[in-house]
């Protein structure tokens, strides 16, 4: 079994690396269920509208119902994924998108092939083949994806973090000790700094108790790495202390001087 990955790394011709978040089988299954519901609703609605033809001919009504049902079931995925560039209603709701596995946009033939090959993926019942394939393939691909060279990625809404959360305009009592600041920069690892920054940016999302606990741990970590004099830290809350440290870590030296 190939080792599965949750991200796909792409290296552009310019030498830039970026990663795409691969969608797991569960979210894909949920999107599929939504799509099945859409197909059922569309087929039923069209069949109801076509019932008008029954006034003219029952034969024509039946023929049109059969044809429209077939066209919708085959064409829904193809039409949506082509028009919405890799998304169906289900995928839009679940924030998923089909993409070329090289990070490029989908070609029409890719969309057609991955959708027509659903017939194999759905064998013998309930998408068993497709499910097993996506659980065992490295990039979570069902057979249709393997043939069409596509992947399904997660596209969560990503917003630029709000740096005002850092509160860097406030007085920083630690800045008065440049030799300790220099040591702090030396001692704190990149990962620790990033975790602290992330905690500050997302602090409003945290539960009050969790927020207190998180900043208590972070402040304790930084205090253990460099000890600032009492007058610099007395009366400073853990969160304020972490904010001061992060400001010092992420500011350019030139700006401070």
């Amino acid at each position: 079994m190939a080792e599965q990955t949750t991200t796909l790394q792409i290296r552009t011709p310019e030498g830039i690396r970026f990663s795409l978040l691969l969608a797991g089988p569960t979210s894909r299954l949920l999107a599929l269920l939504v799509d099945f519901s859409c197909i059922t609703v569309a087929t039923t609605t069209i069949s109801t509208v076509l019932r008008l033809f029954a006034l003219i001919s029952q034969d024509i009504f039946m023929a049109l119902t059969i044809l429209s049902g077939f066209v919708i079931s085959i064409g829904y995925g193809i039409g949506c994924e082509w028009y919405w560039q890799g998304q169906t209603v289900g995928k839009r709701l679940l924030h998923l998108r089909v993409m070329d596995e090289q990070g490029l946009k989908l070609q029409f033939s890719q969309v057609v092939i991955r959708n027509l090959l659903r017939i194999v993926d759905s064998l013998p019942a309930l998408y068993l083949v497709g499910g097993i394939a996506s659980l065992t393939s490295r990039k979570c691909q069902r057979l249709g994806d393997l043939a069409a060279g596509t992947i399904v990625i997660r596209t969560p809404k990503v917003q630029l973090p709000d740096l005002e959360q850092l509160g860097t305009e406030k007085f920083n009592s630690l800045a008065a000790y440049p030799h300790l600041v220099a040591r702090l920069r030396q001692k704190v690892s990149r990962e620790e700094g990033a975790i602290a920054l992330r905690a500050l940016i997302r602090r409003e999302e945290l539960d009050p108790a969790a927020r207190l606990e998180l900043f208590r741990e972070l402040a304790a970590l930084f205090r253990s790495q460099v000890a600032f004099p009492g007058e610099a830290v007395d009366g400073v809350s853990d969160e304020r202390y972490v904010r001061n440290v992060v400001e010092l870590l992420f500011e350019q030296r030139g700006r401070q001087s």
Partner: peptide, 30 residues
Amino acid sequence: GLAAPLEFRRYLESLVARAYGEIHSTRDNA
């Protein structure tokens, strides 16, 4: 290689990924 928070990276990656797809793809025109 810098310790920028993950959100920054994700945001820029999402922009670059979308732009990369647009710039490097030659899509069939139905």
